[in-house]
């Protein structure tokens, strides 16, 4: 069994090595080292994905601009683009991805039970989660921002701050809600509301002067409906978004990181830049050759 696996891995990866090693007859030590290297690569998800001919990605379908269905019923968004970037890197074909739709609660279980090759679903990096799965490099820095109405008297951050105790801010109910808002607007009234859609509803129905929501959502809503929403210009509370995969697979992790790096800082950035523009309304920073920026 072990021998079989070793041989298979050897044949797949080690053809070049074989030619060299074939000359030296008494290379027992080298052979052992090669066998070990070939085995590790053979067990990697990277190898499984390449053999299978498509990438299996766990993601959602209910959160614009991350992962959602457009009006044609196709899955699109920033997370989906990151998956396409990987498929392009693997097969030179961005369409060779199968998306497994999953609830956010399934993100870690679907990795640890091997139901998906990788999860790309607006996952916030935390040390606690990193004990269970391996995170890739971040591809977005999420934050909190203030959504306002373009027709309101107070729509910029300075105006909201000047409003002091008269400024009302709606935010999704959570333990740190009061503190998060008071960090930037120390005197504002905080309205804790049950769902994200209702937090925005509070702003639209003029019960709140600003809605404190994810920075990405603010950018998405403002880019889509500039007549209905505006961005107060303030952002704070950084959270890293990264993809996650199973632990103990350095080859796969390194492949994903490399591909993300090339898309974000290297020369293959068409998909990444176009997605950033479309979903967040932002132009990617210019990349200057010379001293590495990462």
């Amino acid at each position: 069994m072990e021998h079989e696996e070793g041989r298979r891995g050897f044949l797949k990866l080690g053809t070049a090595g074989l030619a060299v090693a074939g000359v030296a007859a008494a290379a027992t030590v080298t052979a052992t080292a090669q066998k070990a290297a070939a085995q590790a690569a053979g067990n990697s998800v990277l190898r499984t994905v390449l053999d299978r001919g498509k990438l299996i990605v766990g993601t959602g379908s209910t959160n614009a601009p991350w992962h959602f269905e457009n009006e044609k019923g196709e899955l699109v968004g920033m997370d989906i683009t990151m998956a396409r970037i990987l498929a392009k890197g693997l097969f030179d074909d961005a369409t060779k991805v199968e998306f497994v739709r999953q609830d956010p609660a399934q993100r870690i279980p679907n990795i640890t039970t091997g139901k998906v090759d990788i999860v790309i679903q607006f996952m916030t990096v935390t040390p606690q989660r990193a004990q269970l799965v391996a995170f890739t490099r971040p591809y977005y820095v999420e934050g909190i921002a203030l959504l306002t109405r373009p027709d309101a008297a107070n729509k910029s951050f300075d105006q909201l701050l000047a409003g002091a105790a008269n400024t009302k801010v709606s935010i999704l109910q959570n333990v740190d809600a009061e503190r998060s808002v008071h960090e930037v607007l120390p005197k504002a009234q905080v309205m804790q509301i049950d769902t994200q859609a209702n937090v925005i509803q509070a702003l639209e129905s003029k019960r709140a002067d600003a809605a404190a929501i994810d920075l990405s959502t603010v950018r998405w809503l403002v880019a889509k409906n500039p007549n209905r929403y505006s961005d107060s210009g303030k952002k704070w509370f950084s959270m890293l978004y990264a993809a996650a995969l199973r632990q103990g697979d350095p080859d796969w992790l390194n492949f994903v990181n490399t591909t993300f790096n090339v898309a974000m800082y290297g020369h293959q950035n068409e998909l990444y830049d176009a997605a950033f523009k479309e979903y967040f309304g932002l132009d990617a920073p210019t990349r200057t050759p010379g001293f590495p920026s990462i």
């Binding site: 959602g60 379908s61 959160n63 614009a64 269905e69 739709r101 399934q106 809503l221």
Partner: peptide
């Protein structure tokens, strides 16, 4: 489990329009 039934289809539209 990520199966798109009526409820999930509704959430997909809400996820796009933010109008629940």
């Amino acid at each position: 489990l990520g199966v798109t039934d009526l409820m999930h289809a509704m959430q997909q539209v809400i996820g796009r329009t933010y109008n629940a």
